[in-house]
Design a protein around this nucleic acid. Structure first.
Lengths: 209, 209
DNA sequence: TCGAGTGCTGCACCGAGTGCAAAAGTGCAC
DNA sequence: GTGCACTTTTGCACTCGGTGCAGCACTCGA
């Protein structure tokens, strides 16, 4: 399926790269809403029609990377060491992501990455689309938790909580960077926030205060 | 501000009603995507241009009711009896909402309401828009929790968790109704689910299992 | 009754997205 | 290499949501 005959496949990948590259470059330079599909197609040297064959909507042009990550949390739970608590696996994964300054944690201060993040946040249609991915991530995580033995109700509730919290953490980190911190400045606080978040998930409000 | 001179104001409200009414009727009859703005305008006997003066986007035509509800949770926290825990106030409010079969709980089996709910869920653009309202609700609730004395970090995390959970509960109730239950059939289970959800919020996983 | 707002309308326009059929490019068998 | 089948690309015409603008109609208050 994935393995078409060589040249065809190669060219398709090139074209896809060209389109996505042109799109992101233009978006970052002028802002999502200030760039038209026609403009992107021209920059990538393909027809408008071809562009739509690769990316069905304008939003996909900016967010296709996230589409793959949507079930990341589910994957982490499935790949956890035998006997480990799913929540603990997610916690460790988040801490590791923070440490490596994973863009998805909001804790990456490479200017391009930060600008990209910002663009998403203050472009309605992109933010909306992103939260849709999040919703699908909830489904996936809930499924993984069920496999791990949680009952269906609790699986969904937990999944929703965890992802909502991770999303907030990323948003808060990003805000801190926008306010002027470097990723390294922010790092210790980001870790503390993450730890508190997971403590909250594990022990609830009752224990926390 | 709200109080324009009588006749003008009255007519505006009538027009607004006419537009919204026509829109919802058509949406329920044919599905959101199968109805064009032009069609709605014709049905409401106004020009397309006028329609857009009242509802800036097609989605607003379906969801404007929700826009007001977006800060409902925040309101509940602010209006709680002195000394009561915010989470407890939210819990009680949810149980009360379930009891009165509030549409927002997903536990309302009036056919129109159910169809409406369903339309939102399986229309991408509507679902996306709705979760945006949810996000703004998180901001509002976090603010209210801060006023109630929570520290900013915890306020945001809690707010995100609570609303994510309520959203899931509503979704699950709606699913149960779609699967054939009546609201009354589902009610006891809905209450149990809500109780467990709040127990989870209060005590975390640790205590729960 | 008149003038100033305010709202409504039509029109021309933009950008996203789709269906279709022709044209160009690629893979493969001979 | 040639021919043929199969993909991909392209251009075009069209639909639909949404906006800017300018003129018209109505309402209000003096």
């Amino acid at each position: 399926m994935t393995e078409r005959t060589g040249l065809r496949q190669l060219k398709k990948e090139r074209t896809r790269e060209a389109i996505a590259g042109a799109a992101i470059r233009l978006f970052l330079a002028k802002g999502f809403d200030q760039v038209s599909i026609t403009e992107i197609a021209a920059a990538a040297e393909v027809s408008r029609r071809t562009l739509f064959a690769y990316f069905p909507t304008k939003e996909d042009l900016a967010l296709y990377r996230f589409a793959d990550h949507e079930s990341e949390a589910a994957r982490i739970v499935r790949a956890r060491p035998a006997g480990q608590d799913p929540l603990e696996a997610l916690r460790e994964a988040l801490l590791a992501a923070l440490e490596r300054r994973d863009p998805n944690t909001g804790l990456n201060d490479v200017p391009e990455t930060r600008a990209f993040f910002r663009m998403i946040i203050d472009t309605e249609s992109l933010a909306a689309r992103l939260t849709r991915y999040l919703a699908r991530g909830v489904d996936a995580l809930a499924e993984a938790l069920r496999e791990a033995g949680a009952d269906p109700l609790e699986a969904r509730l937990r999944a929703a909580q965890v992802l909502a919290v991770q999303h907030e953490l990323a948003f808060m980190n990003h805000s801190a960077l926008l306010a002027g911190s470097s990723a390294d400045d922010r790092y210790p606080e980001a870790v503390r926030a993450a730890e508190r978040a997971f403590a909250l998930l594990r022990h609830g409000t009752a224990a926390g205060r």
